Amino acid sequence: MSTARPEQHDSPENRPRTDVREPPVAVRVEELTVELPSQERPYAAPLQAVRELDLTVPTGQITALVGANGAGKTTALRTMIGALPWSRGKVEVLGTEMGPARVAVPEGASFVPDSPDYPDRWTARRLARAHGATTPFDQGRFDARLSAHGVPLDRPVGRLSRGQLTQLALSAALARDPRLLILDEPFARLDPLARTELVDELRDLMALGDRTILLSTHDLEGMERFVDRLVVIADGRTVLEGDVEALREELLLLERPRQASDERDTDPSLIGPTTSGDTTSALIAVDDAAGLPPGTVLRRPAVSELVTHCLRAAGASGHETAAPVTTPRRGAE
């Protein structure tokens, strides 16, 4: 068992591993670097949106990709579907190695972008014809889902609300009966009831077996009992990766009375410490949780607490990126 404290690792090969067998993998990303042109200064050097990113999406699980705004989530997802080129690294999706010659979503995968971009004059019917001309497409399922969510089949896309546009994109993706569903911020434009209904729908999809979901989201509270695996990225790099339950066994949330040393952040066992009022909270590895001072409370962290403290440790607020928080990647290598 690794100690789950921030450590320096020069390459993925040097990170702790406890795996024995390699399960099926839907998506594998290794040392991915993506450079994008500067939007503000056209002649400036390209910006590294993703830097030596590593992540694994096991088949049959729901994996959440989370991070602060600008961390590289959307860039990483768009690279996986062939929409963006990359400078270095390897991307494999459903057994297909993506590359410069591969510019389409691999067969068996569906992608829903954070801002679906369809021609304003197209209707849902026109979109269905476009999909059906190139891939297997369940028109009945598409029509029924749109009807259930109040999206007119004949209204131009330009006259749909943002929530209706998201439902249109989701309906088109699900009508292809995907083995891998990649969703970029699917809950962002939905109302609370629609979010709950989508979670239930995705659970039903997973119950069919041999299905995999990879989604980026900021809705961490809603993911508490929904996701199986967590990948946290900061500044284009992976800073935490693992099965949610395994991470919650390796890392505990510590809460204790504020100490003078907390202001200096000198305790190397604390991960992403923060002080509010008279209380300091942080993540701490189970192996480091012995001999703590009186008044210390330990409990299993929520998903949102895992994410926020690891991002704080990684300097996601604009400071220099720290080393990854390392935990065993159980059943993922």
Rank of each mutant, 00 (worst) to 15 (best):
M1G: 11
P6G: 08
Q8F: 15
E13V: 07
T18V: 06
A26D: 12
L32M: 02
V34M: 09
Y43W: 11
Y43Q: 10
A45L: 12
P58C: 06
Q61K: 14
T63L: 04
L65Y: 09
L65T: 01
N69G: 07
T75S: 12
L84P: 10
R88W: 08
K90R: 15
A101Y: 00
A101L: 10
V105G: 04
V105S: 08
E107C: 01
E107F: 08
A109K: 10
D114A: 07
D117Y: 02
Y118L: 09
W122R: 01
T123W: 08
A124K: 15
R126M: 09
R129N: 07
T134M: 05
P136M: 10
F137L: 06
Q139C: 08
Q139D: 14
A148K: 03
V151D: 06
V151F: 10
D154T: 02
R159A: 10
L168C: 11
R176T: 14
R176S: 07
D177S: 09
L181H: 05
I182S: 14
F187N: 04
R189Y: 06
D200E: 15
E201A: 14
L205D: 03
L205A: 02
L214R: 06
T217P: 10
R225S: 13
R225C: 09
V227W: 01
V227R: 05
G236M: 12
T238C: 11
T238D: 01
L240F: 04
A246K: 01
L247E: 00
E255C: 10
E255K: 15
R258T: 12
R264Q: 06
R264I: 01
T266E: 13
G272V: 05
T275I: 13
G277T: 09
T279P: 02
A282L: 06
V286L: 15
D287R: 04
A289R: 01
P293E: 10
G295V: 14
T296H: 14
V307P: 06
A322P: 05
A323F: 15
R329P: 03
R330A: 11
